[in-house]
Design a protein around this nucleic acid. Sequence first.
DNA 1: CGGCCGCGTGGAAACGTTTCCACGGGCCGT
DNA 2: ACGGCCCGTGGAAACGTTTCCACGCGGCCG
Lengths: 353, 353
Amino acid sequence: MGAGDGLRVAVERPNARATMKDVARVAGVGVGTVSRVVNGKSNVSEESVAAVNAAIDRLGFRRNDSARMLRTGATASIGLLVEDVADPFFSLLNRSVEEEVLRRDSVLLTASSDKDPERARKMILTFCARRVDGLVITLPEGGDEEYLRAELDAGTSMVFVDRPPRELDVDAVIVDNRGGARTGVAHLIGYGHRRIACFTDRPDLYTASERIAGYRAALEEAGIPFDPELVYSSATTRDPVDEPLGRMLASDDPPTAVFAGNNRTSINVIGALRIHNTSLAIVGFDDFELADVVVPGITVVAQDPKAMGQIAMRMLYKRLDGDVSPSQTVTLNTRLIVRGSGELSRDAVLAAR
Amino acid sequence: MGAGDGLRVAVERPNARATMKDVARVAGVGVGTVSRVVNGKSNVSEESVAAVNAAIDRLGFRRNDSARMLRTGATASIGLLVEDVADPFFSLLNRSVEEEVLRRDSVLLTASSDKDPERARKMILTFCARRVDGLVITLPEGGDEEYLRAELDAGTSMVFVDRPPRELDVDAVIVDNRGGARTGVAHLIGYGHRRIACFTDRPDLYTASERIAGYRAALEEAGIPFDPELVYSSATTRDPVDEPLGRMLASDDPPTAVFAGNNRTSINVIGALRIHNTSLAIVGFDDFELADVVVPGITVVAQDPKAMGQIAMRMLYKRLDGDVSPSQTVTLNTRLIVRGSGELSRDAVLAAR
DNA sequence: CGGCCGCGTGGAAACGTTTCCACGGGCCGT
DNA sequence: ACGGCCCGTGGAAACGTTTCCACGCGGCCG
């Protein structure tokens, strides 16, 4: 009645998870066989499979993946660190990464850095302690990235997204921020604008500085002098921009168009324009829901977070599958989506004044 | 030179992670001492601490959490399953859950069910195999929830969010969907409307059906007959609603106001109104960015995903800390945010026709 | 002066899996 | 008819931690 005993014990303590040993006892086989059945290995007799499955059901057995991970060294998990999982751009990226992770029957650990290098460091180290197979990282500005080298050397694969690495030899997928901004601003110039304001995020952020560079490049190409008075970088994307916009509008030579460096800033600009009861041509960087619901629809330079996630994961899994070729940076092109706000001509704006 | 040997081995194979055994050898102490140092236990001499830390730095040691989890049985991880991490509502919930998880030095596993019960089941079972300490779940409609009982019995704590459990004895935090909808519709009625259209999600979804019930309750209270012709439930929140709205507008007794059952539907309705070049009073369920940027601003019945996440996690951690009191369901109240679209009176709408 | 307590320590067992090795039995080929 | 081989199997080692137990040693109290 040895088997019966095993069962009784399990039934009497329903709160303890059954182990393979318990299953083996109940099924009357060895633990090796249980393991083979659980993992769907082929060389097991039909009777054994049936007996084991019956025992599993009876005991409510579920494999303990901690033990499996320890033994095999493979955790089947990926760590994702972004600025903020609630940000529209990153939440889309998150979802697309999730999709790829799921396809490989892995699990996704997520965290938001909140642009804090220290918090990012802590989370990445936590992920590494958990021995994730790979890491997808948007590293916040301003921190030291050297600590990552140790993890890299230890064999943890990683891909940077949205920002290129500075020193590290890792894969990355980024967006052509500069080119996208240049295109957007050139679009405005094409409609006759010569006084174009530029609202962005903190300029010490990689994406913001690139976009400002694109803005300047477009001006330069058109022979329009750069006027620092027309550039405003907010400390956080949350604060409104009515006041700086008001100052520009009140100047001798006010802008007739605005280039907004990111989607939240676009929204802030729209709000500020409403407050000042005026309309300028607008092109925003990064698409957002409702961009086509306001009137006029907002013309944007769109990124593709879904593609970014897919490509990043494809690169990562290639590394995990053993690819040791030199690291590369993929740059995604942007797409100009014309909706009306960017096609308001200089003449039309001036006429309305 | 025993210690030297240990070091040399580690240096020669930099790709292999050092273990506590390696650290112990290099530091000239026992593994027990290394473990105590790593975990910051107090009863270790200063010299030992110093020696161990030096060895750790030298070897790039990082504790293997798989082994730790196996040994201790505590994984310090929480699983979160929502409909879609890219949805504005759930991404905010995700972030707020993350914040609470971080506070407890845990890690967050996330997944999107995409409203597919089978996918949800798979992910939940995966989380359970990984022995997460607790689960935060938005269970998709239509699936069997019985399989959760086994996990519950096995001691995995869980909290439902956004939907109550049907049979299961688990904690939940939900929103007063019915009451919120009633308030929103009553608000419209207060401005004289008697023909109020209702656009929602699939009515077999819990939240949608509750909101429809709230809509009907408000009508009933005001003595307004319910007209099924004024209710449209789209199969997915992606499809536009121009056609059904057009049909309603073309009828003998067209609506003068709209209640939109969720934020994407609100957006669709705004788009459809624009196409039909007309304006009706609107109240939407669930706030969204830009609700105050369109003109007029959209009056909404707002939920608070952040609070939902906080409360859910507080309940979950109470359970993990041993609370065995009866399970409870917390219902969060909604808040009406007045922005203009809901205050367009019936007379104003009719006058504009 | 002797026993006892407590502190710092090393070592070994245990967590639950996977994987490797060895073994027995049937089958096929020579 | 016999040897080798393959298949299904059981058992044990190993993964890297934590935790428990036992040990030595000093100091303090009786």
